[in-house]
Design a protein around this nucleic acid. Structure first.
Lengths: 200, 200, 200, 200
DNA sequence: TATGAATGAGTTTTCATTCAT
DNA sequence: AATGAATGAAAACTCATTCAT
């Protein structure tokens, strides 16, 4: 017989706490995506999350801490997807690997559309550069290095290519967030253009 | 005897007004570039501009109007440069024209570094998309269309190329603002890569 | 068979309740002594006492009631000591009685150092003057009256002497709480000075 | 002719600012004396001072800074009085000098009754010991040292006497603030008692 | 027109108290 | 009874905007 009723209760409580925490962060993300980081008051977030203002402070030290946690959570959630994207093509040759990477990265970002919007919008206000942006950069660097090793890409071209691939991702994101289109469709044509050029 | 000193004085006055107006907008731009649009209070701007807060309201209806005018002025100042960039190569064939355009655009943007930073950072907060971004887009569209006419660029590739060229510009800007490098050096290699691909 | 476990359990329960009550008040006293009456939140007290905030309300009607009970308990605990101090010397003549009283009072207060600190600090915030301060006053009044009866103290001097004796106690307390010294050592010299003056 | 209208205006403005600053601090002192440091909201202070809440922040960085300035101003205002008290009797022998000092100190404190109440009430919440209390201590130390030099006071008695004199001042203050009596009347009897003892 | 103090609405933050489990 | 999350009223604080001089 289990006389210790504290453990299960604690589990339940933690679960409920996590639920509320999540609702709050979701509410915040939604409102910030729609109105901008500075245009959203805590009262709005609380209302949308279905809690009282004071409750926010049971979960986060202050406004800043809440925003920071929102970003960290989303990054944590993106990170494995991006890591997978980098791992997926490990066995492939440069070109198919790059194609796969581009698709996977755009797919990963697509699954976090709302956050991606917020992240792009606020990227520059932050003291430190976005970790996600850095991860993108690193992913392309890695694969482009493979291209160099295979002799497909000239060593001198590598840095520029890396920058343009990352830039292309941002361009796609920005456009597709604006017009509502999906991200992945552009993956293959971009790689083709980057590798073979636009010349007919 | 000429007692009517109003005409010449009016000129002087207008000139002074314009000087003050300019200082205010410069102060605003500087502070916004350094701290972000929402982190700058009017009191700061006034102090930096060397005027009293109340004076700001003699020049602009409110905070918003001031920011909007800052953007419009910089765009107005950029516009002829961008227009020139579009005109410069009119007589050239597609490729040299594109190369020239890329160089000129990056050069134009380089001369407005501070504003460019602000514009990129705030691009998404604005209800309407940045006119400058649209202008970029249009400039590339025009030249790419020439490439299509010349048969150098496949019609189907044109929109993607346009997007990537504009994206490349932003990538360069972002990187060079971050690391302090100059914009124009990247112009030619980018065009080469876009036209002929990165394949060795 | 005795299934009626209520009677003994009730004792146990009462005992437990009292234990918790005591921990809470001790925690409150400690924190208030360290940080001041208004700087201590109920959450802190609960944590230090090892109970949940809600539990506080099972023991005290509200914050105020808790503080009041803390004061009352300490006073209750001090009262017999002070009463004893007043009784102890009953048989003695004025001077030895006053010396004994001073020693005993300082000894009693010394055994409640923490509370004494809190009491002195908050003496003025309270609507009603501290009972303990009144008790001190009364104790000295009584003995000084004996001095008057014995003709050792002029009737006209009595009130002033009473006030100064009580004031001396506070001065000692304040100083010794600040520097960590003990209270009682000062008892005799003070009485000597008060009776015979500081003149060499 | 004086064409520079800025200087006099600045003087006027400074004067007005000082007036408002003073009203705010007076309002704060009054309310704190009546209700206690923590029981007074900024809104109350603003209302009593006849300004808007926001105005408080044009004069003080935050609540704390306001309180601190209140204390500092009153101390600044007391300091010369206490300094004068210490200087006044410089030429006198020990006993008359001590009598004069006691009268002058009580007189000085009497002229700052409201602040004295607040200071005594909050003395212990403050990290650093009250400067005023230290000044009292120092004043008595100085004169008692004279007594020692003159051979009126035994060197060994000096520290105790100093402590008791300062304690006596506080006792008087506390009692007279409570009952509304004036401070100075007690000065002479206290010195007599301290020097010659209460023995009839 | 320039000034800068005053304003107060809007936000963030705190915390005693309540309440469902 | 114990728990600790939820509540919301009250307090502190910010800052664009107004306005008297």
């Amino acid at each position: 017989m289990n006389f210790d009723s504290r453990k299960p209760r604690a589990d339940l409580r933690d679960h409920l706490r996590e639920t509320v925490r999540t609702s709050i962060l979701d509410a915040a993300e939604e409102l910030i995506a729609a109105n901008g980081l500075h245009e959203v008051a805590l009262a709005q977030i609380a209302r949308r999350a279905g809690v009282a203002v004071g409750t926010l402070y049971n979960y986060f030290a202050d406004r800043d801490a809440m925003i920071i946690e929102l970003f960290e959570r989303r990054r944590e959630s993106l990170r494995p997807l991006m890591a997978a994207a980098r791992t997926n093509g490990k066995a492939l040759a440069f070109e198919p690997r790059l194609r796969l990477l581009m698709r996977d990265l755009l797919g990963a970002l697509e699954s976090h559309r709302r956050f991606v919007k917020v992240a792009v919008e606020t990227e520059y206000h932050k003291r430190s550069p976005s970790t996600t942006a850095k991860d993108l950069q690193a992913a392309f660097e890695e694969v482009v290095a493979v291209g160099v090793d295979e002799g497909v890409i000239a060593r001198a071209t590598a840095p520029l290519l890396t920058m343009l691939l990352a830039g292309a991702i941002k361009a796609v994101i920005m456009r597709r967030i604006a017009d509502g289109g999906d991200f992945v469709a552009d993956a293959d044509p971009i790689v083709s253009l980057m590798l073979d050029g636009a010349r007919a």
